[in-house]
Design a protein around this nucleic acid. Sequence first.
DNA 1: ATGTATGCAAAACATTTGCACCTGG
DNA 2: CCAGGTGCAAATGTTTTGCATACAT
Lengths: 146, 146
Amino acid sequence: MESQDLKNAGLKVTLPRMKILELLETATTHHLTAEDIYRQLLDQGEEIGLATVYRVLTQFEAAGLVSRHHFEGGQAVFELERGRHHDHIVCIQCGKVEEFVDSTIEERQKVIADRLGFDIKDHSLIIYGECRNPKCKGKAGAKRGK
Amino acid sequence: MESQDLKNAGLKVTLPRMKILELLETATTHHLTAEDIYRQLLDQGEEIGLATVYRVLTQFEAAGLVSRHHFEGGQAVFELERGRHHDHIVCIQCGKVEEFVDSTIEERQKVIADRLGFDIKDHSLIIYGECRNPKCKGKAGAKRGK
DNA sequence: ATGTATGCAAAACATTTGCACCTGG
DNA sequence: CCAGGTGCAAATGTTTTGCATACAT
């Protein structure tokens, strides 16, 4: 029950927060922009402001409920934080996002940071490519239609 | 001689372009925001507009003379492209940036992309950490003072 | 009740663009 | 001379903030 997640995070259980959390949990695409979320909630008849979506997402991020990524293209994307760290590979044609973890890469990063005299705190690895999905080229949604 | 670089890139040799290229080549810090460049040129008495800095940097990027990175913090940073691909590790305290290349990581990325059915086109790996430089904590310039 | 959340409109940023003027070849 | 470049101001797109109202507890 997601209302418990909110309470655990010390956040009051309100309609907008519930709806946003719900959407993040059930949406088929797991990486959404604030605008994506805003539009989908409007479409499903909710009355919500874009500013609230941003505020709530920022609070969720601070609470560790979601993580924010900066893929190319201006808008930040948000995803539910499910505890397991991972990196991303993004299709520059259709926008598809896959997640992966590679222990070798993780390990090498530690070695590199250490060699350069840094205490590693975080990292961001994004691979950009073209997916070989036949439906990819020309698939809608690639450029987040205005 | 940098005027040749400009000609090779098919760009007319103008004062603003020369100055920006010169600054990128000689600045002690190799990763600069458009605003950094703008301010430094103003400080050294040049008459230039911020819009021109952005335009020129964008052209330079298209010509392969500079590369643009999106570290955390809103502003893009630019660096002279010296041909050798590399990734970055950034100190979240003082803003220091170090470059590195790790063939193991590069190799693993190819394997991962292939396994997930992507043709890899580009990637961005940024490690965030705290450098152990004694002068780091409290060092000016970390937050790009407004 | 009452302190916190929300919606809306306005502000704040980073970056881009329109346009009249200037400049390099 | 003349296409292309520049500075300035205004426009854009994304995210944040101020404020009066609405809502959870």
